[in-house]
């Protein structure tokens, strides 16, 4: 059981099951779509955090940019969605290359602070050039993609569209994580100095990780803009970066499905709690402190522990937190 949880195919199956189960347990197709979209962006964030050891507060840059570029291409250039999406991925990758290249010039906490500062830079760019972005109002009337001549206006039909892309991109991210490239990222995360000493051009690998993460995050941003019909200023704000990071950490580990789990938890909890109490973020803040103190391996750590209990074998998940790096 616990060995099973380490297999990539199982993770993909879990992602597919998530896609199938969400329509059964949720009444809102919008919320279900949001879970897949943010799950994708959190998985892309995990490629940096869990695999490469880069804690980036800049993921909102690519998410927001994806929203804007998709809106502009759909509205102003009149491109259809299947042409727009690859272009968005390219813009996301290019921007992430630039941001990544600049940020990794500093290491450790300076890197983290730089990514946050860059996220502010892009926020003010979007805010300042309101002719293009709509400023505070956002870019309005972003259309849904069309299929067979009609727009996917119904939430669940758009959900199906998102689900297909989600599974395809999840598979792509998995492929990346398992590749020679992905395995080198793990080495860089574990011991950057040694990775460099055995011959790896660490910077190039980090920038490439940024590019892939940026491309997928921008695609998620595009899907989000089409979902809500707006490319809002809030998508490029600090809070989007923070939210994506929180989802990833709540999910836990160098494990792409865990990030989807984190996103689902965050959005469902937010949906339920905000209906009861608008200040539910207070509870989230308390939860983050609790995770930092008692649950560093996140929700996935709980899954592993549960699996270990079921098989009654001391599994990896049962190792005390203190002994982990």
């Amino acid at each position: 059981m616990t060995r099973l949880l380490e297999r990539p195919l199982v993770h993909f199956a879990l992602a597919a099951i998530t896609v199938l189960v969400l329509p059964l347990v949720l009444r809102s197709g919008t919320l279900a779509s949001e879970i897949l979209i943010y799950g994708l962006a959190a998985a892309a964030c995990n490629l940096l955090l869990g695999y490469t050891g880069l804690l980036s507060f800049g993921q909102g840059i690519f998410f927001g940019l994806g929203s804007y570029v998709s809106g502009l291409l759909l509205l102003r250039a009149g491109w259809p969605a299947p042409v727009m999406l690859p272009a968005v991925a390219l813009v996301g990758a290019a921007t992430a290359t630039a941001v990544g290249w600049l940020s990794i010039r500093r290491q450790g906490v300076y890197f983290v602070m730089l990514t946050l500062a860059f996220s502010q830079l892009f926020y003010f760019l979007a805010y300042t050039f309101s002719d293009l972005t709509g400023g505070d109002n956002g870019l309005l009337n972003v259309p849904r993609p069309r299929l067979g001549g009609r727009a996917l206006a119904d939430p669940w039909s758009y959900y199906a569209y998102v689900a297909v892309l989600f599974l395809a991109l999840f598979a792509v991210l998995q492929r990346v994580a398992l590749s020679t490239f992905g395995r080198t990222l793990l080495a860089i995360r574990d011991n950057e100095a040694r990775a460099s000493a055995i011959g790896f051009p660490v910077r190039a690998f980090k920038v490439a990780a940024f590019a892939i993460s940026g491309a997928v995050t921008a695609l998620a941003g595009a899907l989000h803009a089409m979902l809500i019909g707006v490319a809002p200023l809030s998508n490029i704000e600090y809070h989007t970066s923070e939210t994506l990071l929180i989802m990833t950490i709540i999910g836990g580990g160098a494990n792409l499905f865990a990030s989807v789990l984190g996103a689902a938890f965050y959005l469902v909890a937010g949906d339920l709690l905000s209906a009861i109490w608008p200040r539910w973020l207070l509870l989230l803040g308390a939860l983050l402190i609790a995770i930092a103190l008692f649950m560093q391996r996140g929700l996935w750590g709980l899954v592993e522990r549960a699996a270990a209990l079921v098989t009654r074998a001391p599994a990896e998940g049962a190792v005390p937190e203190e002994s982990r790096p």
């Binding site: 804690l55 973020l281 989230l284 803040g285 308390a286 983050l288 402190i289 930092a292």
Partner: peptide
Amino acid sequence: HTFHILATVGLALVVQE
């Protein structure tokens, strides 16, 4: 250090709310 950041981000949210 990820968890130092997480804890203080959590603290910031609590104060803000």
